[in-house]
Design a protein around this nucleic acid. Structure first.
Lengths: 140, 140
DNA sequence: CTTGCTCCTCTAGTCGCTAGAGAAAGTAGG
DNA sequence: CCTACTTTCTCTAGCGACTAGAGGAGCAAG
């Protein structure tokens, strides 16, 4: 079982050193044993756990979600249902966001395309953003 | 020109009262006139501006971006030329954001799809998250 | 005139980091 | 062994964008 410094773990997982310590502080990563000189010593399991955390964060999961997902992995014989619902919830949110951004993209594109003829007052970007979600850009 | 209380504005825009005051504090929303009794009095223009801010925030724009977008609407007779670079920059940003969200959507979708309602040890959600970024999900 | 709501200001807390100070421990060269 | 450099340690403070709470004042209805 090889021993890894915090810097080495950071290099392997691409998680910054202070962030690793922060995750320990908030109880996401267990406090590792220390050397004589008080340095943290990690092992492969820590690296895997940290990689998991990082990937989940990148996908937009909140720390509490991750805590829940991690606790699921700790009891591997339970039903997958909870992990599924966390992911599904997240998926729906992402889909909503894409739809809104796409509406905005269309309007920004239009604005840039039509630049030179019109003025800002004709711009629909503002309407799209100002409208309450269900935007009114049916005809164009 | 009807006069609206902060609570009424909050109800109309779905922006919480303290958040409205916060936006005033950081200069995103102009400080409205006050009544005799020191209450803020808003009008329809404020409501529109706030709705704009809210939707932009929901789409993930930072406050500084919104400040810039708002400055576009402030001078509607300006030539489109100046606005062009701002709009283009935002368009690129929006496109990048959509691309990232879409990659995320695909991954989340697969996670949910492959969660065969088995047990946690078989759950793709957890496996995908545990994998190092370039995950090994080629065959499925 | 009292009850109950809204509003006021102010401070402090949240989340998920990130940056900096100052000190100690480890490492490589001379 | 001494020096210089790098890594790590702890601790505190800051960020963005809010959110929550205390304590007080305004206002409308009964």
């Amino acid at each position: 079982m090889l021993e890894l410094s915090i810097g080495e773990v950071s290099r392997r997982t691409k998680v910054k050193v202070p962030t690793i310590r922060f995750y320990e502080q908030i109880g996401l990563l267990p406090a590792p044993p220390r050397t004589e000189g008080n340095r943290r010593r990690y092992d492969e399991a820590d690296v895997r756990r940290l990689a998991f955390i990082r990937h989940a964060r990148e996908l937009g999961f909140e720390v509490d979600d991750i805590r829940e997902l991690l606790s699921l992995t700790a009891q591997p014989n339970r039903s997958c249902h909870e992990a599924d619902s966390i992911a599904s919830r997240h998926l729906q949110e992402v889909e909503r966001r894409i739809a809104r951004l796409d509406a905005l993209r269309v309007e920004l594109q239009r604005m840039v395309d039509e630049c030179g003829h019109g003025r800002v007052c004709d711009c629909r970007v503002i309407q799209v953003l100002a409208d309450h979600g269900q935007c009114a850009h049916h005809r164009h």
